[in-house]
């Protein structure tokens, strides 16, 4: 359990960080950002929570056994977008086929958003999984002090 000030700060920051992660996720077409950054920011919100309130509290919000599923789902969304375009007779990840009649490449935009969601989910779950793996480990008693 962290210090009181830390806990209050984390409570205030937690929701805006998640909101910011979604902003970065869906605004990646127009400004800096995208799935990779959004995934890391989303994971860092939960890591911050775990640092302030303890790992067990955080694992109530996001149970550890969801995370491998989320990682796999993210990669599958990415690969599924590619398979989808193949089913319509184009190359793997050739998004134009999603909306072939569009004049402003709506197919490309939909494809990019789908792929970025896959990336974001995979990265967020992987980062949180890695943190859970390290933080869930009991440290051995050490000979050398700080």
């Amino acid at each position: 359990m962290g210090h009181l000030i830390l806990r209050v700060t984390i409570k205030i920051l937690f929701a805006p960080i998640i909101l910011f992660a979604f902003y970065v996720q869906f605004h990646g077409d127009y400004g800096p950002g995208g799935g990779f950054q959004a995934g890391v920011i989303l994971a860092s919100a939960f890591i911050l929570h775990a640092l302030g309130f303890g790992l067990a509290t955080c694992q109530k919000v996001i149970p550890p056994n969801w995370l491998p599923a989320g990682m796999a789902l993210g990669v599958l969304i990415y690969a599924g977008t590619g398979i989808y375009t193949m089913l319509f007779g184009d190359n793997f990840l050739d998004y134009d086929v999603i909306q072939p009649d569009s004049h402003h490449h709506a197919g490309q935009h939909i494809g990019i958003i789908a792929v970025e969601i896959g990336v974001g989910l995979a990265v967020a779950c992987t980062m949180l999984q890695i943190f859970y793996a390290f933080a869930g480990r009991e440290p051995e008693p050490m000979d050398d002090a700080w």
Partner: peptide, 10 residues
């Protein structure tokens, strides 16, 4: 590099 950074931390 953007992708390499994330792969690097993993």
């Amino acid at each position: 590099i953007l992708t390499a950074i994330v792969v690097g931390v993993a």
